[in-house]
C-alpha cells in the first residue's frame, strides 16, 4: 500500500494512540471495562494495522517474530508461576491472598500480574498468527479486488 498517502499518514498518527489505549485498557482493567485479553487484541490490531500499511517485512523488523515467540509462552508462564508463588507462600494455587501481607493488596498484585500474563500471550499469539498468514499470501495489488 505504498502509494496510499492518506492511509499511511493517518495510520502513523493513530497507531501510537491505539497502543496507548491498549495499555490503558490493560492497566485500568481493575477500574473500567477491559483487561488482559481486550488490551492484547487492541495492541495486536495496532501491530496488524502497521503490517498492513507498511508491509509485513518492515513489521517483522519492528515486531520480531523471534521475540514474539518468546513472549507467548512467557505470558502463560507468568500466570502459572503466580499460582505457584501463592502456593509457595502458604495458600492454595492461584489464591492471591497470600501474595502480600494484606489480603486485598495480595489480590491486587495477583490480578495485575495474571492480567499482564494474559496480555503478553494474546498480543504475541495474535501478531504471530497474522504474520504467519501474511507470509503465505501474495502481495495484494489494488486491481486484484
Amino acid at each position: 500500500m505504498r502509494h496510499h498517502l492518506v492511509l499511511r499518514v493517518v495510520s502513523k498518527l493513530l497507531i501510537p494512540f491505539i497502543i496507548l489505549y491498549g495499555l490503558y485498557v490493560q492497566f485500568h482493567g481493575d477500574f473500567s471495562p477491559g483487561g488482559g485479553f481486550q488490551a492484547g487484541v487492541i495492541v495486536a490490531a495496532a501491530i496488524i494495522l502497521y503490517a498492513l500499511i507498511f508491509g509485513t517485512d518492515r513489521a517483522k523488523q519492528v515486531f520480531k517474530p523471534r521475540i514474539l515467540m518468546v513472549m507467548a509462552p512467557l505470558g502463560v508462564m507468568l500466570f502459572a508461576l503466580t499460582g505457584y508463588a501463592a502456593l509457595a507462600l502458604g495458600g492454595n494455587y492461584l489464591d492471591y491472598d497470600w501474595l502480600a501481607q494484606n489480603d486485598t493488596a495480595g489480590q491486587h498484585i495477583g490480578i495485575l500480574t495474571v492480567e499482564f500474563g494474559v496480555f503478553l500471550t494474546v498480543v504475541s499469539v495474535m501478531a504471530l498468527i497474522f504474520l504467519a498468514f501474511a507470509g503465505r499470501t501474495h502481495e495484494i495489488h489494488d486491481d486484484d479486488w
Binding site: 482493567g29 500466570f79 490480578i111
Partner: peptide, 22 residues
C-alpha cells in the same frame, strides 16, 4: 476491593478458567 467485578471474577475467582483460556 476493585470496582470492576468482571475483572475480579475473571482473574481471581475464576483464575483457573482464565489460566486455561490463556
Amino acid at each position: 476491593q476493585i470496582p470492576n467485578i468482571v475483572t475480579a471474577i475473571l482473574a481471581s475467582y475464576r483464575g483457573y478458567d482464565t489460566l486455561g483460556e490463556t
